[in-house]
Design a binder for these strands. Structure first.
Length: 198
DNA sequence: GTTCTAGAAC
DNA sequence: GTTCTAGAAC
């Protein structure tokens, strides 16, 4: 036997092309018909390539807005439109029996502003780490309505600072539906199954 | 953002 | 010995 790792022969599960820096991945996914759910003149909706719940979509503007930090008051109607499009999506029949959260991460890793549209089951094989959990289930996740309100009131989106974000990510694991405090991720992933209601 | 894996935690 | 987390990735 050679020392080389065995060749992967199985067809890999669909992944978006990842040419260029990983932070630009969403820009590629936006162009991939496999992931695009819907779009109009100003926004595109895609399925998240690594969904953290049974339903997990992203709404992205066509305009090259890198993140919440780059959002200006002239983007107000765009952000309102992103929220409206997200609300239309979750009213579709296939989502009827699910509750959804609409919001932004306080600090995003991936380029291009994106609104998360995620069912609140948090039941997914892609949800693996404490950071994953806390990014959707602490104040690190900012509801779209609050982002829009902040933009209206301040002319920009007021965000928690770097240290505050770090604290959110290090927060003790907490079930989002009851007072249970899981001892680790496998414990949490087992626990949330009890709350499933499809 | 994910993958991989060393070494901490159990 | 096995499970689990957290940090590097050129």
């Amino acid at each position: 036997m050679s020392k080389r790792k065995h060749e992967e022969t199985a067809v890999s599960t669909k992944k978006p092309k990842t040419s260029g820096h990983w932070a630009k991945g969403l820009l590629q996914t936006m162009k991939d018909p496999e992931f695009v759910v819907n779009s109009d003149d100003s926004v595109t909706i895609i399925r998240d390539a690594y969904p953290k719940a049974e339903f997990h979509y992203l709404v992205l503007p066509m305009e090259d807005i890198s993140s919440l930090k780059a959002v200006k008051k002239e983007h107000l109607s765009l952000l309102e439109h992103m929220e409206a499009v997200a609300n239309d999506l979750i009213r579709e029949d296939k989502h009827k029996h699910k509750d959804f959260k609409l919001g932004y991460h306080a600090e995003a890793s991936m380029l291009r502003l994106h609104l998360h549209v995620i069912s609140d089951d948090m039941n997914s094989a892609c949800l693996k780490t404490k950071k994953h959990w806390n990014s959707f289930n602490t104040a690190f996740f900012i509801n779209s309505t609050d982002v829009v309100q902040s933009l209206k009131q301040n002319g920009r989106v007021v965000l928690p600072g770097r240290e505050q974000c770090k604290k959110f990510m290090e927060q003790q694991l907490q079930c989002h539906k009851c007072d249970y405090k899981p001892k680790n991720m496998p414990d949490l992933k087992g626990h949330i199954l009890k709350h499933l209601r499809k």
